[in-house]
Every structure is written in structure tokens, then in C-alpha cells.
């Protein structure tokens, strides 16, 4: 299947947006201090990556994001499997979870700072808290919504609860779990950056905040573009992993 016209189209759209941006800045409609030209933004981005500390800052943000994401995924999958497989756990935990779920992670940051101080692992905990929901809810669904016929097959074969969780629950939940992990990674990036902004820990978030406060608009936009690129790469990588882990979903006769 050839989809190069579609690809070419997507490149064209991106280029025209950049051109529009360039045209707006060249026309002088907006002061460069609010909206720098794309050429100077990219030049600055390049300089920052090659000579400055932008690369290090990006890596430290990504590290925090990935640790938070792994924590959220692990917690979400374990808790989700427990709730999905055990009706009792569902009854006991659901009310608490429904109370916690709507809380924006950023509002917990002041609480976290007050309780644990500005410790890096406090921020990780907050990131994991905010990003656990997109994993937890689909995992619960994936583990609980196993076809009754398959449950019957398992019972007839005398398959124990642990084997059932591994051989029936996990693969049944896997597509939902991976989709949730993709959403979760995006949530992680957002919470990481906001967390860095609020707690002023080293990373892109704090850098963007500082750049904005000191009217270094090219730095600000360079940081934002970098975040966008990080997010897009994350999503593409996870798409590949998803196809590798769930081959039966793409298998056709």
C-alpha cells in the first residue's frame, strides 16, 4: 500500500504553517518579543542544542517524564488488574478512586511541596498520580470485560486465577492498556513541565518559564517546539511497540 500522497500532504500542511508564521513575523504585525520569526527560533534552538544546555535540560525533562510514566503504568496495570479481576476490590476501591480522579495533578503540587518538600521524587509521585488514570481505567475494563465464553473455557480447563490473569486477562486488556499508556505519556509530559515550572526544578519547564519571564521569546518558542517534538516521537515509538505487542490485531487472512 502506497501512502506517499498522504505523507506529502502532511509535510505540505506543516510547511505552510511555518510559512504563514514567517509571513506574519516578517510583516511586522506582531512584535518579535511576543512572536519571534521561525527562522530565528530554529536558529536559537539549534544553537541551544549544540552549544548550550538545551539538550541536557531536554534530557532531564524526558528522564523525569519517563520515570513518572513507568511508575504510572506499573501502578495502573497492577491496580487495574486487581480491580478488574476481583469484584470485591472493585467495591472497596472505586469510591475512593472516583474521589481522587477528578483532582488536577497540578493542584496537588502545593500539597506535595508542603508535605514532602521540593524533593525530586515528590514531583515523580505527582506525575505518576496525574498520569495513572489513562492507564488504570482501560486496564480495569480490559481485565473485567473478558468474554463469558472464554471464562467458561478457562473453568472447563481448570485454569487457576493466576494463570487466568496472565493468559486471559492481560492479553485481553493489552490493546486498551497500550492505548491508555499512550495517553498517559502525553499526560506525563504535561504534568512534568507544569511541575518543573512550579517547583523550578531543572528541565524544559523551568527554562520555558524563565524565558517567558525575561522576554527571551526565541528561547521560549524553542522550548515549546522541543516539547512538541518530544511528544510526537513518544507517540510514534509507542505506536511501533503497540503493533509489536499485539500482532493478532493486525493479522489478516
Amino acid at each position: 500500500m502506497s501512502n506517499w500522497p498522504l505523507r506529502a500532504g502532511s509535510v505540505l500542511v506543516t510547511l505552510s504553517i511555518l510559512l504563514l508564521w514567517q509571513a506574519v513575523t516578517a510583516s511586522g504585525l506582531v512584535a518579535p518579543v511576543f512572536l519571534p520569526s521561525p527562522s530565528s527560533t530554529f536558529a536559537n534552538l539549534w544553537r541551544g542544542l549544540i552549544r548550550g544546555d538545551l539538550l541536557g535540560l531536554t534530557l532531564s525533562t524526558m528522564e523525569r517524564m519517563i520515570y513518572g510514566w513507568m511508575l504510572a503504568s506499573l501502578g495502573g496495570i497492577l491496580l487495574g488488574a486487581l480491580i478488574g479481576l476481583s469484584p470485591r476490590a472493585r467495591y472497596w476501591l472505586t469510591p475512593t478512586l472516583e474521589l481522587l480522579r477528578p483532582l488536577p495533578a497540578s493542584t496537588l503540587l502545593p500539597v506535595g511541596i508542603a508535605l514532602f518538600g521540593l524533593h525530586p521524587s515528590m514531583l515523580l509521585g505527582i506525575i505518576a498520580f496525574g498520569a495513572v488514570w489513562p492507564v488504570l481505567l482501560p486496564t480495569i475494563h480490559g481485565f473485567s470485560a473478558i468474554d463469558p465464553r472464554l471464562r467458561e473455557v478457562a473453568r472447563n480447563l481448570g485454569i487457576g486465577p493466576f494463570s487466568f490473569a496472565i493468559k486471559f486477562g492481560l492479553p485481553n486488556a493489552l490493546p486498551d492498556v497500550i492505548a491508555g499508556m499512550r495517553l498517559s505519556l502525553t499526560a506525563c509530559l504535561i504534568i512534568t513541565v507544569v511541575g518543573e515550572m512550579i517547583t523550578a526544578q531543572q528541565g524544559l519547564g523551568a527554562t520555558i518559564m524563565m524565558a517567558a519571564r525575561s522576554f527571551r521569546s526565541t528561547d521560549l518558542y524553542a522550548g515549546i517546539i522541543l516539547l512538541g517534538v518530544v511528544g510526537a516521537i513518544n507517540n510514534a515509538l509507542l505506536g511501533i511497540i503497540e503493533r509489536a505487542l499485539t500482532p493478532w490485531r493486525t493479522a489478516h487472512a
Partner: peptide, 12 residues
Amino acid sequence: FQDYGRALLPWR
């Protein structure tokens, strides 16, 4: 079972 589509594990 009659409904073989539901009695087989689609991921295997």
C-alpha cells in the same frame, strides 16, 4: 461451543 469465534483466544 457453537460460537467458535468467542471460544478461541484471539491473541493466540
